[in-house]
Design a protein around this nucleic acid. Structure first.
Lengths: 230, 230
DNA sequence: CAGGATCCGGAGGACATCGCTCCACTTGTT
DNA sequence: AACAAGTGGAGCGATGTCCTCCGGATCCTG
């Protein structure tokens, strides 16, 4: 528990409406960042919160502070989950379940994914937070390898890379399961030592779904669309 | 072979210096798009070509035309390669070799990757060009499945998705081989029916390399960096 | 319920970027 | 030499982003 832009102790309690607005801002920011990623404007967030931009800037000195308030704890929670997974009874299940948690959260939340790909917002603190996942993550992998589940010729960087590659497809749905479940299953079949330890593939998507997912995965900005072409 | 913004037949041969500049522009554009993706500015390209912006716009009516001139043939060549792979003796080798070609080109060329993720430049023609790969691609997969190499519970959308996910890591090098080779190998181990049909993993990268690759993979734009914070 | 501290909203300033054009000047060609 | 063809780069207009200003509304205290 840290205090980033929280009200600092008891120094000056917020006025009722201000506190209310602060919550509205956090709620809206959480939603907007999740949907559109960290590139979303504070203006966008203000609008979504049904609040003026100035109100946002009064409560959070800048975008970094807002990002920090929203994501630092989320990352620490992931670190805790990694630690729990590393201590789970079956090392393979721990390994898989942590990948699932990471993917689920990153795919549901473009903002979180942006944090992991190293977006420039609140960079230092975020980098530090991410490193707090490291030890448990390494342990998770080492144990799954020591127990003969995870192939021994991969390292933690590989797992990270694979996790990020899969999450790059975003949270698109094909059938009723998210696509990442399917590609995680395939990746695990490539990572596990014996295939029979893995599960069946989740339902398959249509080609259209894939293509749509690829289109959105690279961000949704249209680049200026020819202003005065006469 | 099409003529996009080429000199139209014999109608008006370009002046010597103009023709020279046209080549310089194409060369520079090819390099700049490959390095920085289709978001690169025509101003960037002009600078790289050591030529004024106007010269670029005189030779290519707009960015779309330049993109088209550079990438349409490249995509048609990929279609031809897909057809050749689909006709190769061993269907698994054909399948793998086509994936390798796609990945190699997309990782060496951010612009080409942008085309495949559906960038808005020259969209229609590019979409049409990409569809010309489709039939051979499907055949490739169907044959690898029919021959019992490729697992039967995946479809062409899956393969496309996997190919794009891997290429999202870009052409970063870890050791001396490009990273995509390693992750393609793992993916193939998850896709093949019997593991002994696949090769060993290419050399492993360090964690730093992976992290660096993730950082660049999402584009290199710094978002404004706090202009007047006083 | 008065009065002051606190907070609000949204217009807009400062700056950046991008696609593209204008036009005074230079160069190639005949 | 003469003229068409070509050149470069300042700069226009549109768009986008971060953040501030300030007249007015709102809350809380006494």
């Amino acid at each position: 528990m840290n205090e980033v832009a929280e009200d600092v102790g008891e120094e000056r309690p917020l006025r009722a409406d201000a506190a209310r607005n602060r919550e509205k801002i956090l709620t809206a920011a959480s939603r907007v960042f999740a949907e559109r990623g960290l590139d979303a404007t504070l203006d966008d967030i203000a609008e979504a919160a049904d609040v003026g931009v100035a109100t946002v800037y009064r409560r959070f000195p800048d975008k970094d502070a807002l990002v920090l308030a929203l994501f630092e704890d989320a990352i620490d929670e992931l670190a805790a989950l990694a630690a729990r997974a590393a201590a789970s009874e079956n090392s393979w299940e721990g390994f898989v379940s942590f990948l699932e948690v990471m993917l689920e959260r990153q795919c549901d939340n473009r903002g979180l994914r942006d944090v992991f790909t190293g977006s420039p917002y609140a960079q230092e603190r975020m980098e530090a937070a991410k490193q707090r996942i490291g030890p448990a993550f390494s342990a998770l992998i080492a144990r799954a390898q020591a127990d003969g589940y995870l192939r021994s010729d991969v390292n933690e960087g590989d797992i990270l890379a694979i996790e990020m590659m899969i999450s790059s497809l975003g949270g698109a749905k094909g059938g009723d399961a998210a696509l990442w479940r399917r590609y995680l299953a395939i990746a695990l079949d490539g990572l596990v030592v014996r295939r029979e330890w893995t599960r069946e593939l989740p339902p398959s998507p249509s080609l259209e779904v894939i293509i749509a997912a690829l289109h959105v995965s690279k961000g949704v900005h249209r680049p200026h669309a020819k202003p005065h072409a006469g």
